[in-house]
Design a binder for these strands. Structure first.
Length: 214
DNA sequence: AACTCGGGGCA
DNA sequence: TGCCCAGAGTT
């Protein structure tokens, strides 16, 4: 079996395991996804989804957010955690969207990463899910799982991103990204992974032992 | 590279 | 109780 076959088998198995994996954040347009993704940093998608529908219905646009003071926005998002930084970043981002992008969310990486509170991972999520520009956003789950499965072997998150993109056809990037996250959250945990019953255990460096001796 | 933000969920 | 969460900015 060539290395390529092994990778393909792992990827197709992942997609079979999580056929419905998709972006779990609530959003109706690029702006809502951008804000929801900023809120989701170090928070759960579930807790973000608990507050965003009502928030977006009252403040649908960047200009609407700018009518809020930072303290008012902090109060709106308090249950998410890290709310002071997030409120500050969101208001600064909305100001830039209004003043420099005509109230729209830019559809390119450079402009997205220039927004306060938006790093590479958030930019990738927006490009992929709101603008249908394929990316693989590498977060801790994607990083951990792809290293364990041998899809990437790197200590650098962005080299992992590059390795995954080279190994998998562009049409599957988004799906693979979501599958890796689902697997990382539901099975392949950082501390105590549920290897019993994991269909990928026999392809997993951690389960087999780093030297593959098991 | 290390540190900080942070309330909620879950064992 | 303790640990973790679909990170990013600052020093």
């Amino acid at each position: 079996m060539t290395i390529l076959d092994r990778d393909s088998l792992i990827v197709s198995t992942l997609i079979e395991m999580y056929p419905d994996a998709c972006c779990a954040l609530f959003f109706n347009n690029p702006f809502e996804l951008l804000i929801a993704t900023i809120l989701a940093a170090q928070a759960t998608d579930k807790s973000v989804n608990q507050i965003t529908p009502a928030l977006f219905s009252r403040y649908p646009t960047p200009a609407d957010f700018l009518t809020l003071s930072q303290e008012e926005l902090e109060k709106e998002i308090k249950t998410i955690g890290l709310y002071k930084n997030k409120a500050r970043h969101i208001l600064a981002t909305c100001k830039i969207l209004v003043e420099e992008h005509g109230g729209d969310v830019p559809a390119n990486r450079e402009a997205l990463e220039a927004l306060p509170g938006v790093g590479r991972k958030t930019a990738n999520v927006v490009l992929s899910n709101a603008f249908n520009i394929p990316t693989i956003a590498v977060d801790t789950h994607v990083f951990r799982v792809s290293n364990r499965l041998g899809l990437a072997d790197s200590k650098d998150l962005w080299k992992t991103e590059q390795a995954l993109m080279e190994k998998v056809p562009e049409s599957l990037w988004s799906q693979l990204h979501h599958c890796l996250i689902f697997h990382g959250r539901q099975v392949c945990h950082a501390r105590k992974p549920a290897c019993d019953g994991c269909q990928l255990a026999l392809h997993c460096k951690m389960y087999l032992g780093a030297d593959g001796s098991k």
